[in-house]
Design a protein around this nucleic acid. Structure first.
Lengths: 191, 191
DNA sequence: TCAATTATTCAACAAATGTTGTATAATTGG
DNA sequence: CCAATTATACAACATTTGTTGAATAATTGA
């Protein structure tokens, strides 16, 4: 039982070309004045072909972000053998290592103010994991579970954003350690 | 000594007209397919005039957000007599009341994924206030001051965003109380 | 291998964008 | 009030955008 029917090689080739061209241009010039024409020329495809796969350049960027974050989640998850499982590893260092390894893209991203998709996606992932921890501990608190999870996850994502926007002033290990301390203050322990 | 030289009445009139037209259209139809032409027509100004004041519709939206948040900060700050001071009132209820009062705009905002400016502006304001509190208490912590402030402020803004995005499921007083509890857990007390 | 499918190209299109130069009108400062 | 300034209107422009239809090429499945 194949999960997906074989994808036409032409599509794969074209998408890869467009993606590559876009990522190049994205780090080269301002996103604002980056036209579909630029991208199609660099990718050596017809301009119309780009519109065939993406609605506009924003859609293109969003799909790139999606892909990067899927990579991140795969990179930082336990249980490599059960791919559906997205449980965050208790050591948070890999998260920061991943962003460090893709610095060029992510720092460009923040320069271009197109961070909504990035936040939403990362936030959803972290929120899920924080909720799991909260439910496991199930402490009797006067603070709403949902709110608490949202609070901690937002804080987490905020720290990551701050770190990227400030050109990663601390090493990943330091960041992971600080985050662990902050989580422990809120009764969320690594294991 | 006047702080600003008198602003040409034509500019004020035009900007007000554009702003009003934009805000109307913003809640009526999708931002994506909202053209400068639509706006200029509704505002009864020449299309070129819009470009005279704003670079594009994104800039126009950003400036609206700025204005709303300036209002918020004025609304929620102590020391009305010293206008430069932007110290957050210890009771956080007004913040949620303000957003509740401008529900239409802010919920449209999140529907259009143009939240970068909103976050940045609100985050800066909250971070400033959290830092003040941290410095005042000056507790001996193994957690970096800057990181700690960023952590708490992001969490704060995240809660506000969550509340708006989820159509404000709790009353402002409840939200303010929950936030106070969460801050107290992190040794940040109202007064 | 071959027929069916479909991705891509190309050209042409209307619409929107952003800019520029000139004319006109309103406002301001003296 | 008047002269200087400047905001706006208007028209024209090149560019970008997003779409469409027909022709062509590549891929697939049998």
């Amino acid at each position: 039982m194949r999960a997906t029917t074989k994808i036409d090689r032409r599509i794969v080739k074209t998408k890869e070309a467009i993606n590559k061209a876009f990522l190049e241009l994205f780090s080269e010039k301002d996103f604002q004045q980056l036209t579909i024409n630029d991208i199609s020329e660099r990718a050596n495809v017809n301009r119309g072909t780009v519109y065939l796969h993406y609605t506009d350049k924003y859609d293109l960027l969003d799909k790139c972000i999606e892909e990067y974050l899927n990579q991140l989640i795969a990179f930082c998850s336990l249980d490599e053998n059960s791919p559906g499982n997205t449980t965050l590893n208790s050591d948070l260092t890999p998260i920061f290592i991943y962003f460090e390894g893709n610095f060029t893209f992510f720092s460009s991203l923040f320069a271009h103010q197109r961070t909504f998709v990035f936040r939403e996606r990362l936030l959803a992932f972290i929120t899920l994991n924080v909720k799991k921890k909260l439910e496991m501990q199930n402490l009797d608190s006067k603070i709403d579970h949902e709110l608490n999870a949202q609070f901690m996850a937002s804080a987490f994502v905020g720290i990551v954003e701050w770190w990227i926007q400030h050109a990663m002033p601390h090493p990943p290990s330091f960041m992971a350690d600080q985050l662990r301390r902050l989580f422990e203050k809120n009764d969320i322990y690594a294991d």
